[in-house]
Nucleic acid binder design. Structure first.
Lengths: 201, 201, 201, 201
DNA sequence: GATGAATGAGTATTCATTCAT
DNA sequence: TATGAATGAATACTCATTCAT
């Protein structure tokens, strides 16, 4: 119940603002004001706006990767493993609503913070491809890599497009019921993809 | 072969820079320099940075919508129509590489230029839902609205994630061959979705 | 009934804007727009913003001086001559409402357009002092020069302060009735001053 | 003897420049340079050029009003009270030479900073009218309101016209002797006005 | 740790003015 | 005469960052 300490408050404020508006549109002043701390403290605790941003990204990447790794590691048949990974993906994103926006904006943006995102997405890409290596070819339209893109796009875009589609969606797409419905759709998608895969060779 | 005139050069430069970096990260100075014109001319011809940005968005929206409408209008069975729309979508985006990045960044961003994007996506959403109204329910995990999100995410994210995935992809995902391979995958996805749909009632 | 020609329209527009807002607050673009002519024509016809302003001032000074000279010249006793000058002053200003504002702003302003105003006011000053030379001393509290300042301030400030005092004035100070009332006050003031003057020596 | 702090130096520089040249003709750069401080500090300490200007005006209005109120409050016969007010007016303006120029320019200018000037002048107007209510009618050429305009114009215009009239004046109108002479003239004016007033009814 | 002040480079935008047609 | 385009300097204001206290 005690007040969070200064670095925590700065991180929280920066997370919100970067998540909502993006790196370029947010000033250190904005962050300090939202955190209720002196502007100079942002630099005292995090060195620079850039490092602060990197810290936030880092935390997301690490947590996200860990969550997916746990799901991947389970000693289960491929199909069950993929469903578990899908659930873990949905869970993580629905609990970290700013994360998909950050990623989407970075991916579509310039090269500034590309390096960590390449590492992160690359690792996830490789885990998925490896998990599918027995049942999917490595190239061609039914290869694991294409399923990866369709797969991750289907999850992440639901969350990023929700605010824009809300007026025509019919109901709140980000309510618990909305997300459950999407979850069911995504599990169907996993099965549809598995059905569409043709073993290599 | 003659030099393009000033407004054209400004539009081209602005398209590139907004497409690569985003509204907030680009200055009017950058645009003028890339266009090789005096900074004040940007304001003389377009009034403000904001109007210049709106002009670029407008053009994309109009062209995109028109391209999809042409595909939707064809007097063909649903399945063939959807495949045509998918081709039109892929064609338009692969010929306008900055467009998906702009849209993705706007969707994931703050509310500044949200209005036109809501209109544009909303219209596309409704066309798709109507096209599917005989073969898909209006709600639930297999409803047209979910297919729309999965569908459009699978197209657009391929293009926006390509630069980031390139190092691990194996081959250039945005080469002609890469896009053809994706096209085949997406056509499979259309059929998979059609197979997964259950008629309403 | 024919449309006035371009230089005339520019002068009219400039007169309004300089009169209402002042030199620094008005741009050549504003003037051209109000005149309904191309901006470059302002420079074609008048050379520069500064020369345009000088032209307007010149016209006012010349007309004003001429109006007062005519009144001064009359072969009448001092008292009648002063009343005639007062009427001419009031008439000129009430027919050229922008003029007192221009003068007031120039007098209170920087040294940019001071030269012509010095000439103009200086001439008026000397005419008045000469007209009074038989009945007023040249120095001291009852000298002509002090009456000149009180006199001209009482005329000009009525017009410049009117818009500001209007809400508390009770009636429109710049209506015909308002001005007539002021005229009566000013004629009383002339007589009071004449009564207060002591012949030199 | 210690150096004044930054806000004080900015206020002093702004007072001089606004007083000499006017709001539109002065840039924040000019102010910062004259104050010998970094340009951004003007915004750090005062928010905007406009707020800085308002601060300066506010101070003048408050001080001026207070000075006149003190003079008005004295428990003296009307005539003595008016002479005291006249002295307070002259004293305040001769000690704050930029003030009459600011007021004159504002009054003759556009509507930007009109609100506070209306309040200020309106209050002064009403005090004067009330002070005279027993000896002057409320309307007509000998009403208090006309005496107010003549009265205040005779004070303020002496100071604003002085620089322009100096070359023909004979002696420096703003020297101590010059001001004393004017003071004598103004006290005569008060008496002349009192003599010219006719009790209401 | 925390603060208020300071800085120099940068932001979008407007300016008076010029010029080719 | 008239016009649309062009220019370079200036405008108010914000930025990330530093520093003395």
């Amino acid at each position: 119940m005690t007040e969070p300490d200064t670095p925590t408050r700065i991180l929280a404020a920066a997370d919100e603002l970067f998540g909502e508006i993006g790196y370029d549109g947010v000033s250190v002043r904005d962050i300090a004001e939202r955190a209720g701390v002196n502007k100079a403290l942002v630099f005292y605790h995090f060195g620079s706006k850039d490092e602060l941003f990197a810290r936030i990204l880092d935390r997301y990447y690490t947590e996200h990767q860990r969550a997916l790794e746990r799901a991947f590691e389970a000693d289960l048949p491929v199909r069950e493993r993929l469903h578990r990974v899908m659930d873990a993906y949905i869970d993580y994103i629905s609990e970290n609503r700013h994360y998909p926006r950050l990623v989407q904006r970075l991916v579509a943006g310039s090269g500034a913070h590309m390096a960590p995102i390449k590492d992160n997405l690359g690792a996830l890409f490789q885990s998925t491809v490896e998990a599918l290596e027995d049942i999917a070819p490595t190239a061609g339209p039914y290869s694991a890599r294409h399923f990866f893109v369709t797969f991750s796009g289907a999850v992440i875009n639901y969350f990023t497009y929700a605010p824009v589609l809300a007026p025509v969606w019919g109901g709140d797409p980000l309510s618990d019921e909305g997300i459950d419905e999407r979850r069911a759709h995504l599990h169907w998608l996993v099965d549809a993809m598995l059905g569409g895969m043709r073993p290599p060779g």
